[in-house]
Amino acid sequence: MSAPERIPPRSVTVNELLSKGELTVRGRVREASNAVLYCSVSHEGEEAACVYKPVAGERPLWDFPDGTLAQREVAAYEISEATGWGLVPPTVLRDGPYGEGMCQLWIEAEAEPSLLALVEEEEPGEGWKAVAFAEVGEGRTALLVHADDERLRRLAVLDAVINNGDRKGGHLLPVSGGRLYGIDHGVTFNVEDKLRTLLWGWAGEPLTAEACAVLDALAGGLEPGSGLATRLAELITAAELDALRGRVASLRSSGRHPEPSGDWPSIPWPPV
């Protein structure tokens, strides 16, 4: 599948294009567990590539209400934008060829030095953070590490806020210019602790001054009656919104990255 070459123009914002444009299905991402359709979206003579995930194509999960994953993806985008970090591609909820669903700008990842690795050393090398030991076959183990990268660290904070239950390596999309996006945020915002991620390298360490400032601003933005809270109330339940506020408050109070609770598998499977 080849993406349309033109970037969304300045005269039409990306969100307008995604929300109002005509969706044309071009193919399907078959390795995904839910229906993920690769589309083009056109509006006022402009075109871009996007991903469309119809609610009708969602696989039921035992721990999430049916038909809510698309809304959670949009809610994750809303929180990402509120942080100012722009870690989630533009994402909207809209009607499409197969009913209501999530529509997200397609991001073409660029090759760059790996953000994740398996090493045979007991300790991570310089510039890397340890996650956990993993079996690699024939009775051998290796240390899973991720880059000590400020982009990943911001994403780790975002995941803690939204309670991301599925931060895999394949959900990290570096692009030209040094920017990094995270995708696939359907299993988020649960009231119970569901944080599963490959980005545990900073667990227990103090949050950066930048992250603390972002969390302070986010707490204010989540006050009842605010624009952000009103938008989120249309996407997640009242209990989930309260739990979101609680996670932000907890992070601000501790001033540290969360650690695995031990009550839930801390690393997603498969990890990529």
Rank of each mutant, 00 (worst) to 15 (best):
P124L: 06
L232D: 00
T141N: 12
I107Y: 04
E22N: 11
D216W: 11
A156S: 14
E122D: 15
G101I: 03
A238K: 11
W62A: 09
V74I: 12
R6G: 13
V157H: 00
A134M: 15
S19R: 15
S114I: 01
A35I: 11
R30Y: 10
L61Q: 14
G86I: 05
L244G: 06
L218R: 06
D166S: 06
E16H: 07
G186H: 03
L232H: 06
S266Y: 01
E126F: 00
V29P: 05
C103W: 03
L199V: 02
A211N: 02
A249S: 15
P124S: 03
G220K: 06
E22P: 03
T208H: 05
A156G: 04
D184N: 08
R196E: 14
E44N: 12
R154C: 00
S266G: 08
C39Y: 12
E108T: 14
D166I: 04
G170W: 03
V55N: 10
G182M: 09
P4I: 08
V248F: 06
I236S: 06
A130P: 03
A243C: 04
C212G: 10
A82W: 11
R151E: 00
S261W: 01
H185T: 13
L172E: 03
V36E: 04
D159E: 15
V41G: 10
V14Y: 09
L17A: 13
V136C: 05
G67C: 12
P260H: 07
T188N: 14
Q71M: 13
D193V: 04
V131K: 02
R247G: 04
V248D: 00
S2R: 15
G170A: 09
V145M: 01
E58L: 09
E100G: 11
K53D: 03
A76M: 05
N164W: 01
S40L: 07
R245D: 00
L232R: 12
S266D: 14
S80D: 08
V175D: 11
E205F: 00
E122R: 14
